[in-house]
Write a protein that binds this DNA or RNA. Structure first.
Lengths: 169, 169
DNA sequence: TCCAACTAGTTTCAAATGTAACTTGTTTGC
DNA sequence: GCAAACAAGTTACATTTGAAACTAGTTGGA
């Protein structure tokens, strides 16, 4: 069977709503996000031996100590298996401790250990410095615009559940 | 050693450059990108049985037929193993054919088969419609702004190599 | 009080990744 | 015109991942 390869004016002028990958937003988002993640990973992976998920768990607990695993799941869009294994790794490295919740004996509240907190406090400035450096090509106003646009996109793709906390100061 | 747990005014007011995950751009990018990818995947995965990478290879070839695998690698930031296995899958399903390149007998040029092209042409409108629907919460101007900001961020994170083709019309 | 339905967290297992090594073919320097 | 270095693409393997099943504990009726 002869393939119908569009040719002639219509095809060469990209009529009939052609897809241009370099303009396709999901594609750009994915490439940008992966590249950014890899760059940041060099900090917490290479120098501190953390995986992305371990770092993310630490970041959540650094902000709000004493959460349970399922609270972490609900506020980070991480899978519960991923949280479970990140916690196991952090515990094995002595960076995190858990204790039974009195209220619910299934639940375990998680806290950074002394080591974990020390690690957190040496990591955060490095991370923020790198972020600042990365964002320095944008004006403050542009960063605000970007955040606002991402909020809109997040709301449009996931109307039911917010992808991240609302950001009231 | 006593852990230095910040407390008091400085800590509770988030002094000393605290990290707020919900404001942290790599985090937001990652969550947004993954959510968006999953939503789009429902189209090409669920209904057409394609993986993300198979779809991406098809999207590239739909735009520019007859590329080799390594040309796809260089213009999409995909890994060569990933391209190789996506191509194998597409070939097994009869959606793509390859033929030896006369110039270099190691290289194989890739083209969508008749089936592949038909699939591509039924998929693209679905994808673009969904993208349009998603982006409908933004004005045309806002989309342009977003694209421009992402360009800047991409340039800042990867100065050496552009993450996607420059977009001259 | 007992049972069914539900939730927290872990384990298991199959599939998806990415790194490194490998095969085949090409280029370069002599 | 031949060996060494290099490039295209595949294979092998170790690691990561995610879905589903599982254990343990809780809740809400009747």
């Amino acid at each position: 069977m002869k393939p119908h390869i569009p040719s002639g004016p219509a095809a060469s002028r990209r009529k009939d709503a052609a897809l241009r990958l370099s303009r396709f937003l999901p594609y750009r988002l994915s490439v940008l996000s992966n590249t950014v993640s890899r760059e940041f990973a060099r900090i917490y992976e290479g120098e501190f031996g953390l995986t992305l998920w371990q770092w993310r768990v630490m970041a959540v607990l650094g902000e709000t100590d004493g959460l349970t695993a399922s609270e972490i799941v609900s506020r980070t869009a991480m899978d519960k298996v991923v949280v479970s294994s990140a916690v196991a790794g952090l515990r094995a490295d002595g960076r995190l401790v858990r204790k039974a919740s009195r209220a619910d004996r299934r639940a375990l509240t998680l806290s950074l250990s002394a080591d974990g907190r020390a690690l957190y406090h040496s990591l955060v400035p490095r991370i923020l410095t790198f972020e600042t450096h990365w964002l320095s090509s944008l004006s403050t106003q542009e960063v605000e615009t970007l955040i606002a646009l991402m909020d809109k996109l997040a709301g449009a793709i996931s109307p039911a559940r917010p992808l991240w906390d609302k950001d009231e100061d």
